[in-house]
Design a binder for these strands. Sequence first.
DNA 1: GTCGGTAGTGAATCTACGA
DNA 2: CTCGTAGATTCACTACCGA
Lengths: 241, 241
Amino acid sequence: MYQGDALAVLRELPAATVDAVITDPPYNSGGRTMSDRTKASARGKYVSGDACHDLADFTGDNRDQRSYIAWLSLVLAECLRVSRPGAHCLVFTDWRQLPATSDALQVGGWTWQGTVVWHKPVARPRRGGFKANAEFILWGTNGPYDGKRDLYLPGVFSASQPSGRQRRHITQKPVDGLMRELVKVCAPGGTILDPFAGSGSTGEAALHEGYDFVGIELSEHYQRVARQRLDEVAASSAVDH
Amino acid sequence: MYQGDALAVLRELPAATVDAVITDPPYNSGGRTMSDRTKASARGKYVSGDACHDLADFTGDNRDQRSYIAWLSLVLAECLRVSRPGAHCLVFTDWRQLPATSDALQVGGWTWQGTVVWHKPVARPRRGGFKANAEFILWGTNGPYDGKRDLYLPGVFSASQPSGRQRRHITQKPVDGLMRELVKVCAPGGTILDPFAGSGSTGEAALHEGYDFVGIELSEHYQRVARQRLDEVAASSAVDH
DNA sequence: GTCGGTAGTGAATCTACGA
DNA sequence: CTCGTAGATTCACTACCGA
């Protein structure tokens, strides 16, 4: 686990050392107006009014769309440099930022291979229309990928977000049913990079499935949370062996 | 049912007479190279080699991406003119054209409200990666919509394509489990427009759910198929009453 | 009818090969 | 070298048929 700005830390990493990039950048959506978007932090947008949990806030979520594309393409281009040929890249996004994120992925030099759906069975209904109970995962590769592997993954995953005591981050992803399946695109025994590690769900899934993990997180708080979580996973799997 | 080019026919229709637009334009995807896309017809692209069914072909599926956006925005802008304030618009697309289609929807003047997922349980697997077993439905509205209706629709639908004798068009959508649910966004008793009607699944669903239907189809063959199908539905529901 | 085995299929994607 | 076509691959599900 590194602590620091994703772009800055990525530039320090050696080229062609990583087999997959799996990450969930700050979405910078939610709120159609500039004033909504430029609220100082993410909690006003993602946390519903009466949910008074004490999750720490995260910053870096107040770019407008053009600079979001520019910034994310820089990050993804660095990820491409750091990754080996044939490496996979999975980027989470919501419906609003999907077009911008697909631009950034391709500007960053990745070959867009498809869009995977994460279906959240539990979500707030929307009166008078359709529920927004899916997130999207853009799948790209560093050039052609190994199509000879005996690997067949579904295109739609259904899993609920962690809740209660399990919940450490406001955009935390479920490890079982989602992250542990996603990491399997990575070649066996490879190294997985997450430049926006958050509370470390990608890392937990990676270690569980026998991969190495490199994480970067800007927030000092979450960096500590993730490090501790990964230490626990490593310790428990050391006991297993 | 009208027969003719969508854009030409739409221009003849009176303004503000329709309560929902639900349609599935030709995707113009399929094939990464220009030569793949510009194949004369759709069957060569989408139908696998040994499937020797006798479904008629369709054309108008060979634009490049820029002209696809330009053309589709013109069509959707006309749809906006034809629709009443607060009307809904649902446009099918695949993962490859989703960004372009969302541009066209918004250029056409619609307010993008979300992306609905159609999960297809039956699809070819993909070796070494994720299956492409979802299509996407972009949801837009003509200005603000009626948020007071007692209507709560899911954001993810799971339904299989019609097959066997039920199958009349190579891109036919399932009526049960998908189209009959989608049409419910339309205000009760309203009129639904489909400028790319194909074999008329949208119309069948609309009539079943008690809506009026206006369809446009370029192909003379499919226009006949759809008209006959809708006549059958109308006849059978007349018997019901 | 009901059940169970079988054959067939898919808005795909990649590789190989020939022009 | 580029462009274009033909062939092979694969899993989950469904229509169909026979018992």
